[in-house]
Design a protein around this nucleic acid. Structure first.
Length: 281
DNA sequence: TCCCAGGTGTTAC
DNA sequence: GTAACACATGGG
């Protein structure tokens, strides 16, 4: 087992996992087991450090996954200097959040499930999919289920898929699985410009404005995207005194305002509103 | 019982 | 182009 040790000032493992960008992690001992595609690692904090333990051949994978080569002090300072009090407060509270570089295919399937759904239920549904469709692998003496391959979605019956809690979204995932199995290469879309990638993702049934923005941000590192969901719409109206009502217009406004930092700021604020403000009082 | 959750597809104008 | 509606499911 390899250990990656990283200063925790700009890497808080709990906030990074629970800010809504990923659904595949579980509490384990004093930290978390984290799953990505067919890989697993164990992370915990210790003496102002965040420690990641993984298999030697996965070290680079997780360094990239946790975005360890990006300088978050720059992003953080930009938030503090933004002039928006709500963003400043959010950044101070979520200083240790990092935007993960997640597997593109997994991110696409996962956020397809997120529409009109809530995070605990999305998490549970994805866990069900993994354990029902994919054979287990071992990590650190225990077993886990990798994320199902597109073929598993393609060959699963709608009845099987429905047993996981997908609800009306089941056909969307099956269709995507079939499309990828037939040769559609989601990974290769990364060569596209952001506007071309956007159009491409929108061609997938079950993927709209918000899901495509999440996939672009969390899977394709398009940090200028600003996904707008119910929480962000609330923030825009309550904390930015915004007048726009169309979510696409809200997203465009925020994305333009914050440029290449838009996606990071979005996570700071989503986390603050959902995980901090709504919990107390 | 109704409303909400990291919304989108379809239909009707 | 946009406004209304349906869509599975579970928690509050």
């Amino acid at each position: 087992m390899e250990k990656i040790i990283f200063d925790s000032e700009f890497f808080n493992i709990k906030d990074t996992l629970t800010c809504g960008q990923t659904f595949r992690f579980s509490e384990f001992e004093s930290g978390y087991k984290i799953f990505s595609a067919d890989k697993c690692c164990y992370a915990y904090s210790e003496n102002n450090k965040t420690v990641i333990e993984c298999e030697r051949q996965d070290e680079e994978y997780f360094e990239n996954y946790f975005d360890l080569s990006s300088d978050y002090s720059k992003i953080y300072k930009a938030a503090l200097n933004s002039g928006y009090p709500f963003l400043v407060a959010s950044a101070k509270c979520g200083k240790g959040i990092r935007i993960l570089n997640q597997n593109k295919t997994e991110t696409l399937f996962s956020f397809m499930i997120s529409q009109n759904n809530n995070i605990p239920r999305i998490k549970k549904t994805i866990e069900n999919l993994c354990s029902k469709l994919q054979t287990p692998r071992s990590f650190g003496g225990a077993f886990f289920h990798p994320f199902p391959s597109p073929e598993k979605f393609a060959f699963a019956s709608l009845e099987q898929l429905n047993e996981t809690g997908l609800g009306y979204r089941a056909p969307y995932l099956k269709l995507l699985g079939e499309r990828i199995s037939a040769g559609y290469d989601v990974e290769k879309l990364n060569v596209l410009s952001s506007s071309a990638l956007k159009n491409e993702l929108l061609s997938i049934k079950g993927v709209g404005e918000k899901v495509s923005d999440c996939v672009m941000l969390f899977g394709y590192k398009r940090t200028e995207r600003f996904p707008v969901d119910t929480w962000i719409e609330k923030i825009y109206k309550q904390d930015f005194s915004g007048n726009l009502s169309d979510r696409k217009a809200i997203s465009a406004w925020l994305s333009e305002r914050f440029g290449e930092y838009a996606g990071y700021f979005q996570q700071y604020m989503f986390h603050y509103k959902r995980n901090v403000l709504s919990k107390n009082s």
